[in-house]
Design a protein around this nucleic acid. Structure first.
Lengths: 213, 213
DNA sequence: GTCTATACTAGGATAGAC
DNA sequence: GTCTATCCTAGTATAGAC
C-alpha cells in the first residue's frame, strides 16, 4: 500500500462505487449526486471526475457492481439448497430462492434490475455492463428451464413473472405501501419466494400437461 | 367563465395537476419540477405558488388525482365483467381485471401506489390523501374477500401479492428490462392479470380446503 | 392571479495549483 | 491524484409590480 503525500485512498475508485451504492440504497437512484458521494467518501467534489468521466460513468460502475453481487447472492442461494446425490436440486425451489434473493437485494439496495438494465445506461453501450446483465440472467435461467422442461419461451416467461413479483414487493415495501404490515426485509423475501413457488409449480404442471397432451 | 385581463387559465390549479401528472408519466416522480410544470402550462415559474404552497403540496394533489382515476378504472374494469342475474361476478376474475387495470395505470402513468402512499406525502397528514388511499383499497378489497371466503388477513395478503406483481411488471417495463419482449402496455396488463388469476385461484383453493379441514 | 425579478441552494463539470 | 476555486445550469421559493 504505497500511500504517498496527499492521497486519501488506496483505491478511491472502488470507494466511490461502494459509497454511491450505499447512497442509492438510502435515497434511490434518482437522488444520487456525485457531490454527495464525494463528501461521504471524504474527498473534494472534483475528485470523482479523475476516476469517472461523468455521473453516468459512475452509475454504470455501480450497475456492474450491483449485478455482480446480485448474481453471486442468487447463485449462493441456489447452492445452499439440499441437493441429491447426483448434484441436482428441486428446480421449483431453486427458482423460489432466487426470487427471494432478488427481492432481498432489491429491498436492501433500493435498486436491482431497474439499475442494471436502465435504458440510459444501456445506451452507453458499455461492454462490461452488458456482460454483467447477461450474468444475472445466466444465474436465473437454468433452473427456470428445468421447471419448464427445457422450453425456453416458457422459462423466460416464468422468470419474468417471478422477478416482477419480487421487484414489485421490494418496491412497494420501500414506497411505504406495505410498511405497516410487513416491516422487515425477511418478510418481503419470503413472500417473494412464496409467489415464485406458486408460479413455478403452475409452470411445471403446464409443462407436464403439454408433454402428455 | 369570467376571463379578465391577464388571466391565462380558467382553472390553472387543475391544469397544473394534470400537467404534472403527464410529466411524471414521462420522467418519473423524482424528476418532477415545479418550474417545468409551469413552463409546460404556459405560465411563469412563480404562478404555481399561488395555488400550491410547495412542491410537496402539488405532489399531494397529484397523488389524490391519481388515486381517483385509479379507483375509477379498477371499479369500471370490475363492472365490465359478465355478471350473473343476482348481480354477482366471478371474484377471481374480478381481482384479475383489477390487477390488470392497476398494471396498465402504473405503466401508463409511471407511478401508482408508490405515489399515493409515498411516505413523504403521507407524513404531511393530508386528509384528502388519506381518504383517496382508502378509496383505492375499498375498490380492491371486496372481491379479494370473496375469494378468501371472508377471511380478511388472507384477502389482504392476496391483494398485496397481486398488486406487487402488477406493480413490478409495470416497473420493469419502464426500466427497460422487459422492453424487447413486451413492448406494449397491453402485454403487461394481461401478464399481470394472468399472475393475479393464478394467485387468486390458489387462495380460493386454500380457503376451501380450510373450510373442509 | 399572474407577471418579472431576485435570493438562495445544489449539483455537474472543468482549470490550474500542488 | 487530489485539492481549491470557479463556471454554468436548474430548481425552490419569495417580493413586489400590475
Amino acid at each position: 500500500m504505497p500511500k504517498r503525500s496527499t492521497y486519501h485512498h488506496g483505491d478511491l475508485k472502488a470507494t466511490l462505487v461502494s459509497t454511491a451504492l450505499r447512497l442509492i440504497a438510502e435515497e434511490g437512484i434518482a437522488a444520487l449526486s456525485v457531490a454527495e458521494v464525494a463528501r461521504r467518501a471524504g474527498v473534494s467534489t472534483a475528485a470523482p471526475y479523475r476516476h469517472f468521466a461523468s455521473k453516468q460513468a459512475l452509475l454504470i460502475a455501480c450497475a456492474i457492481a450491483a449485478a455482480g453481487t446480485l448474481t453471486e447472492q442468487m447463485t449462493r442461494a441456489q447452492e445452499e439448497l439440499p441437493h441429491h446425490e447426483d448434484g441436482s436440486a428441486d428446480p421449483v425451489e431453486a427458482t423460489a430462492v432466487s426470487a427471494a434473493a432478488y427481492a432481498r437485494f432489491a429491498a436492501e439496495n433500493g435498486s436491482g434490475l431497474d439499475l442494471i438494465f436502465a435504458p440510459e445506461l444501456q445506451n452507453a453501450g458499455d461492454t462490461d455492463l452488458l456482460q454483467a446483465g447477461r450474468g444475472v440472467m445466466d444465474a436465473l435461467l437454468p433452473s427456470a428451464l428445468e421447471v419448464t422442461g427445457g422450453h425456453a419461451r416458457d422459462a423466460l416467461e416464468l422468470l419474468e413473472r417471478q422477478i416482477a413479483a419480487a421487484h414489485g414487493y421490494a418496491a412497494l415495501l420501500r414506497s411505504g405501501f406495505l410498511s405497516r404490515r410487513h416491516p422487515t426485509i425477511d418478510d418481503v423475501a419470503s413472500h417473494a419466494a412464496a409467489i415464485a413457488r406458486s408460479l413455478a409449480r403452475e409452470a411445471r404442471q403446464a409443462a407436464r400437461a403439454d408433454r402428455q397432451g
